[in-house]
């Protein structure tokens, strides 16, 4: 999804990691972890795609960083179900899973929430994407990271931990229900008065942005990788980097 729909999120992820001194390698051959088919019940279609993912990332060394709590949850928490009954693949999946981190989780774990101190002149609010929050367990850490950026005026979002209604194929399969859940989210977003929403998963970003655009709202929704990368760029270009 990031690769084809939101390459800027991927580029921003690389920028953030490089800013922290991490040497980043991008595996050209990668496509998808298999989650869309798995979540739709088509495990026989997800299986070869997930196997391909494991084989590919086994060939690289070091931690694997993904700018998505949802993809991280698939590999870490659901590959076990996908490969149920295949102990060899289950073990290989678990080993890849141990190396895999969501971006804000990775930054928090290895660099701390105050490692990035850029500048971002926006009024913003933060939405807690479900899989990052409940499957990966990253809750307030991204907000702490954002509170470290100068110029950024954060307003808490009411019911920030309630789903935006995206849910992958659910958003297309049951659009009326997905949109009703989204409607409540957008009401709370607009009530903050912020001009930017920051969130951790591209699917949720597009769900909220797509809904806001339909409302003719000017509020922008950006991925946290973009917010962090932009804040780093702002400091670099003004030369007051620390």
């Amino acid at each position: 999804m990031v690769d084809q729909l939101a390459p800027a999120v991927g580029e921003s992820t690389v920028e953030v990691l490089e800013h922290l001194g991490v040497t980043v390698q991008f595996l050209d051959d990668q496509t998808c972890c298999g989650q869309p088919a798995f979540n739709s019940g088509f495990r026989s279609e997800a299986l070869p795609v997930a196997t391909r993912f494991i084989e590919l990332f086994e060939r690289a060394e070091g931690p694997i960083v993904v700018p998505s709590g949802s993809c991280a949850a698939m590999v870490r928490n659901y590959y076990g179900d996908l490969f149920r009954g295949d102990s060899n693949m289950s073990q290989r999946a678990a080993r890849v899973g141990e190396r895999l981190f969501e971006l804000t989780e990775f930054v928090t774990k290895f660099f701390g929430t105050s490692a990035i101190s850029g500048e971002l002149n926006e009024s913003a609010t933060y939405h807690k994407c479900c899989h990052l929050l409940r499957e990966i367990g990253i809750d307030e850490q991204p907000i702490e990271m954002l509170s470290n950026l100068s110029g950024l005026d954060m307003t808490p979002l009411e019911r920030a931990d309630v789903c935006c209604g995206f849910g992958g194929a659910f958003s297309v399969k049951m659009p009326d229900i997905s949109s009703a859940i989204l409607g409540e989210k957008l009401d709370f977003i607009e009530a903050t008065g912020a001009n930017t929403v920051i969130a951790g998963d591209t699917g949720c970003v597009y769900q909220m942005q797509g809904g806001l655009r339909r409302r003719d709202s000017n509020v922008k929704v950006i991925h946290i990788a973009e917010a962090l990368a932009k804040s780093i760029r702002n400091v670099d270009s003004t030369g007051v980097s620390n």
Binding site: D3, Q4, L5, A6, P7, E11, D176, S178, Q209, G211
Partner: peptide, 14 residues
Amino acid sequence: STRDFPLISSGSLK
């Protein structure tokens, strides 16, 4: 039906 959809980007991340 209820949301705008983002166009596929003109270039992949790769």
